[in-house]
C-alpha cells in the first residue's frame, strides 16, 4: 500500500509518466503537474461542470476522479481540441454567437457540446438545454450557448 503511484497518461497526444500522490484529483494533476491549465476548477464537488473533459471518448468530471484512475487512458482537454471536425465547428460557432463571456465554463461546456453532437444529438433546443444542464455558466444566460450548439447540430454535426 502506498500513497504515491506511477501513472502513464496520454494527454492531447502527449504521453506523460509521473509518480504522484494518490490523493491528487485528475484536474489538479493536469493543471499543476502537466501545465494543461485550460481545464478549470469550479467547485471540486462535481456540480459546476467546469472541469469536464474527455477520457477515452467519454466526458467525466475531472474533480471527481483521482489522477491515478486515469492511468493508461487518453485524455483530451480544451488545448487538444482540433480546429476542424465537430470540435472546430463548435469553437467557430461559440465565437460567432458569443457563447462565452468570461470563458471559465467554456472548456467544460465544449466537452459537453462535443459529446452531444458526437452522440448524434439533433437540432432541438430543449434537448440541448437538458444536455448541458450539468454545466454552470453565470455570464451568458445560456441562450447563446444553446444557439451555438444548435447551429452545429443543424448542419449535421460536422
Amino acid at each position: 500500500m502506498a500513497d504515491t503511484r506511477t501513472i502513464t497518461v496520454n494527454v492531447n497526444g502527449e504521453v506523460h509518466t509521473n509518480t504522484i500522490n494518490v490523493r491528487k484529483n485528475l484536474i489538479d494533476y493536469l493543471r499543476d503537474d502537466l501545465g494543461f491549465t485550460g481545464s478549470h476548477v469550479g467547485c471540486e464537488h462535481g456540480v459546476c461542470g467546469a472541469c469536464t473533459l474527455d477520457i477515452n471518448g467519454e466526458t467525466v468530471r475531472s474533480c471527481l476522479m483521482l489522477a491515478v484512475q486515469a492511468d493508461g487512458t487518453a485524455i483530451t482537454t480544451i488545448e487538444g481540441l482540433a480546429d476542424n471536425g465537430v470540435a472546430g465547428d463548435l469553437k467557430k460557432s461559440f465565437a460567432e454567437k458569443n457563447a462565452l463571456q468570461c470563458g471559465y465554463c467554456t472548456p467544460g461546456m465544449l466537452a459537453s457540446a462535443i459529446e452531444y453532437i458526437n452522440a448524434g444529438g439533433n437540432a432541438d433546443k430543449d434537448k440541448i438545454r437538458r444536455h448541458i444542464s450539468g454545466n454552470y455558466c453565470r455570464c451568458t444566460g445560456y441562450q447563446a450557448i444553446v444557439e451555438a450548439i444548435y447551429s452545429v447540430a443543424e448542419n449535421g454535426g460536422n
Binding site: R31, D32, F36, T37, G38, S39, H40, V41, T77, I78, E79, L81, K91, F94, A95, E96, N98, L100, G103, Y104, T106, P107, L110
Partner: peptide
Amino acid sequence: TKRGDTKRLLRGRGKYVDDLT
C-alpha cells in the same frame, strides 16, 4: 463584431490567476 478574446479562451489559452505559478 466578434470578440477577439474568444480565440484565446476557446483554445484553453486564458490566463486566470490560478493558471499562474
